[in-house]
């Protein structure tokens, strides 16, 4: 699914705080790539309908061979080579996501995916790179964990948006823990500590603090991990404000 990947930020682990949301990513909604995407989605819906209506294996096979990705590919490719780099990036994301429907032989598919991933990674310093993080994470097996980790480390260091840096750090933490081992865990902890220090009470900092809490830290006898809560009217409070009182924490929903 291309559209959700490009048009929302849902690919990252969680929604960034509104104040940090990148205006560039938002702005790319209504533009050349956006229009082409809409056109492609419509073509794909029509193609799917034809496939559903087709009778017999032969007809289905013929329709399957005409996947709209093939017809749209040159147009996205042209955009990906255009002067507007944010637009080029949007086109590249589509290409990376769609290349498997291009009808390539398996032996050609992996090299092409790698090449596209490299081009996406070329935008790692740009404010609009956010959806690239989850797109590349999705190619983990094709590009390799070490390569992906390298891109994430770079992004965390040099990206011009604090929000994208944080997202890269979180993705790196997940990847490091997947890789496992003492060294990886040490680096993961370091990244989390940096997020706690630099992102304080934003959701990024909160999430990092949560990641640093281990199940053992929640056993009876341990000091309850501190957190900042906010009422729906914007009043902020900390658990530690209630020291000296017996507290019942009630996690609940009205649903």
């Amino acid at each position: 699914m291309i559209l959700p990947l490009l048009l929302t930020l849902s690919g990252v682990a969680f929604e960034p705080p509104a104040a940090l949301a990148s205006p560039l990513v938002m702005a790319s909604r209504a533009d050349a790539v956006g229009e082409l995407l809409a056109e492609f989605e419509a073509a794909q819906d029509a193609w799917r309908q034809r496939l559903r209506d087709a009778e017999g294996i032969k007809e289905k096979k013929a329709i399957r061979a005409e996947h709209p990705v093939k017809a749209f590919w040159p147009r996205f490719e042209a955009l990906s080579e255009g002067k507007d780099r944010a637009q080029a990036f949007g086109a590249l994301l589509w290409m990376l996501e769609s290349v498997r429907d291009k009808g390539l032989r398996l032996s050609e598919l992996d090299p092409e995916r790698k090449a596209l991933a490299e081009r996406v990674a070329g935008h790692h310093a740009e404010a609009w790179f956010l959806p690239g993080i989850s797109a590349l994470a999705g190619e983990r097996k094709t590009v390799g964990e070490e390569w992906l980790l390298g891109v994430l480390r770079q992004t965390a260091e040099v990206n011009e948006s604090a929000e994208v840096q944080a997202a890269a750090m979180f993705e790196a933490v997940g990847l490091l823990r997947r890789i496992g081992g003492e060294e990886s865990e040490a680096e993961a902890k370091q990244l989390l500590a940096r997020l706690v220090a630099d992102y304080g009470e934003t959701p990024w900092g909160m999430r990092a603090r949560g990641e640093l809490v281990s199940p053992e830290d929640l056993l009876p006898g341990k000091v309850a991990p501190d957190f900042m809560g906010e009422t729906i009217d914007g009043h902020q409070f900390k658990l530690s404000d209630y020291r000296g009182k017996v507290v019942v924490l009630d996690f609940y929903g009205f649903w």
């Binding site: 969680f14 929604e15 959701p203 909160m206 999430r207 603090r209 949560g210 809490v213 199940p215 929640l218 056993l219 009876p220 006898g221 341990k222 000091v223 309850a224 991990p225 957190f227 809560g229 658990l239 530690s240 020291r243 000296g244 009182k245 017996v246 507290v247 019942v248 924490l249 009630d250 996690f251 609940y252 929903g253």
Partner: peptide, 27 residues
């Protein structure tokens, strides 16, 4: 939509209670 506090406390079901004493320790 995001649940950083529930995630921090590893909440898996609802409701979940934590009873905490005056020293801030989980009881």
């Amino acid at each position: 939509e995001e649940t950083p506090i529930a995630d921090m406390y590893r909440v898996r079901g609802y409701p979940t209670y934590f009873l905490i004493d005056a020293d801030g320790k989980i009881v």
